[in-house]
């Protein structure tokens, strides 16, 4: 048998170390919310005044914080939410293609979360129920505008579609947990969440 990492997390992708060389090169970080509720982003803001410390070390690319629409080459990509529709897949792929490290942030990204509670129903049943059968609907029809992303037949956590480097579980993860993982990564350490920081609810 080959020397495998068993079920340990994947090995750390080396990041350029902050402060290496003469000039301080800021790390680029992108964030997005797919099939999520932005709760994880709110929790991200809960790192409070440490945001000021963070922005000394990182520069934000695509993110609700910057309103940049597409992600350029980044060091760290942070994904909130799972995959519920075609657009989620496009955005996730864009992040994976551009980010050296991809982090799944929060329950929905990690295991599908609340949106995945629809997975025991067929999509056809759901669309029928919502747009045709529901009480009070007259001449309901299923929206078919090409502008709208089509829903996937099942909601997937992001690791089922792209390779994910790190996971921060929680609904949402606490600001402290997010801070811990980010600072560990920035310091070149394997991120580790101790008791109280790792939680699934």
């Amino acid at each position: 048998m080959s020397e495998l990492d068993k079920f340990a997390p994947s090995p750390l992708t080396p990041l350029p170390q902050v402060g290496e060389g003469n000039e301080v090169k800021k790390l680029k970080v992108a964030t997005t919310s797919l099939a999520g509720c932005f709760g994880c982003h709110m929790s991200f803001l809960d790192i409070d005044e440490r945001l000021l410390e963070l922005v000394k070390l990182v520069e934000f690319d695509r993110s609700p914080l910057t309103d940049i629409k597409h992600c350029g080459p980044c060091d760290i990509g942070i994904i909130e939410g799972g995959l519920c529709n075609a657009e989620n897949v496009h955005v996730l792929r864009e992040f994976r293609a551009n980010c050296k490290i991809l982090i799944a942030l929060g329950a929905c990204a990690v295991n599908g979360g609340l949106p995945a509670q629809r997975n025991h129903l067929s999509l056809a049943t759901i669309l029928e129920e919502v747009y045709h059968a529901q009480h009070g609907l007259v001449d309901g029809f299923i929206p078919n505008d090409p502008e709208l992303p089509l829903p996937l037949d099942r909601v997937h956590p992001i690791h089922e579609v792209v390779k994910v480097d790190y996971f921060i579980p929680g609904c949402p993860p606490s600001g402290d947990a997010i801070w811990k993982v980010l600072t560990d990564l920035l310091a070149g350490r394997e991120p580790e969440l101790g008791h109280g920081l790792i939680h699934y609810d």
Binding site: I142, D153, K163
Partner: peptide, 26 residues
Amino acid sequence: HALLQARQMTGRDDSGAHLERSDESR
């Protein structure tokens, strides 16, 4: 294929109603 049911339900077949294979993603 995961979009097939949605395509059938909406009658859409435009390019946005499809997802290409993910070879180009890392």
